[in-house]
């Protein structure tokens, strides 16, 4: 990431001054205000200079609001459903019915875990066939109980392992995409952090696709592209640039519908606001989508994915 030592020094100074003030010795209001505006300016400058690779790092930031903690901050109530009813439960892809503002919904979300043990158990948010079969099960419930489906996507990709292959991970992803496209309820996907390839699109083929300002969405990680196409790991930042994986770039390509703004410096600088903003955005989108007749919604959904990323013109009109 861009060198942020100046920002960290200012933050430390601010903490120090506040402590001094609290101790009651001196009035430092003016100094504090000055430092705060300087900090904001620095953050804005740094933010504006961010490269695509910087965004990738922000999307992966260890303190980024995501997973279960974000859901708990965002929803008024959440009841987790576990297990695929076929032999397992994947802690990396989770979900259950929830209440968001005035809406009852079915939430699906990737979970990376916060402690090292939890992260290992969740394979850093890489879901297995069990995860995608659970998401299929939850979509069935949503369809039956008429709950709009909201997915929060944050995964490096589906888990590449021997067992994943033995349990047909590719088929599980394909079925998840297929069911999501055929749901008789409105659907919204939010690319929250990393939207990694098949593991992301499995739960992101929605009526509305939103992206957090610093999220990324790509068919391959920059590291993967650098290894395959450049045959050189040091080309990773270049690959990040070439892949056009940031929210503004994908909005321009018309592959997503809207960007959810983050606090200056990234969502992790203000997790509370992130949860509140995301809830407000989702409720607003839900209200709009729920007004639409179902037939129209399904027709528009088909058209959207049928036309997604199409080649514009035949080279040979014959």
């Amino acid at each position: 990431m861009v060198d942020d030592s100046a920002i960290r020094a200012l933050e430390a100074k601010l903490v120090e001054l506040r402590q001094m003030m609290e101790a009651g010795n001196v009035d430092l209001t003016e100094e504090l205000a000055m430092l705060e505006s300087k900090l904001l300016k620095l953050r804005r400058e740094q933010y504006a200079r961010m490269s695509e690779w910087d965004r990738v790092k922000l999307a992966r930031h260890p303190e980024r609001p995501r997973g279960l903690p974000l859901v708990e901050a965002m929803a008024h109530a959440f009841y987790e459903l576990r297990g695929d009813r076929m032999g397992g439960d994947d802690p990396a892809l989770r979900g259950g019915p929830a209440i968001l503002g005035d809406h009852r919904v079915m939430l699906l979300f990737h979970h990376r875990g916060s402690t090292p043990e939890e992260q290992r158990a969740c394979r850093h948010g890489m879901a297995t066939p069990e995860g995608y079969r659970k998401s299929l099960r939850l979509m069935e419930i949503a369809d039956r109980l008429k709950l709009p489906v909201i997915s929060l996507v944050d995964t490096p990709g589906a888990y590449p392992g021997v067992q994943s292959e033995e349990q047909n991970i590719a088929g599980a992803i394909a079925q998840s995409i297929s069911r999501m496209l055929s749901l008789n309820v409105p659907t919204i996907a939010v690319i929250l952090g990393e939207g990694g390839s098949g593991g992301a699109i499995a739960v992101a083929a929605a009526d509305r696709v939103l992206m957090m300002e610093n999220a990324t969405y790509s068919v391959i990680s920059p590291e993967g592209a650098a290894a395959i196409l450049w045959k050189d790991p040091s080309a990773t930042p270049q690959a990040a640039q070439a892949l056009r994986l940031t929210a503004p770039q994908l909005l321009e390509l018309e592959l997503i519908d809207a960007i959810v703004p983050e606090a200056i410096g990234g969502a992790h600088t203000d997790p509370k606001r992130t949860a509140e903003d995301l809830r407000a955005t989702l409720c607003q989108q839900l209200t709009t989508l729920c007004e639409r007749p179902l037939d129209e919604l399904r027709h528009l959904r088909y058209k959207r994915y049928r036309n997604a990323g199409s080649a514009r013109t035949p080279t040979d009109p014959s």
């Binding site: 394909a174 297929s178 790509s218 068919v219 892949l243 056009r244 390509l253 959904r301 997604a308 990323g309």
Partner: peptide
């Protein structure tokens, strides 16, 4: 697999072909 050089555009083809398969 996916055409890496078309990035997220190629990813969308997964949804596109599945939508047509549902049809």
């Amino acid at each position: 697999g996916a055409r890496v050089q078309e990035g997220a555009v190629s990813l969308m083809q997964m949804a596109k072909t599945v939508a047509a398969r549902n049809l």
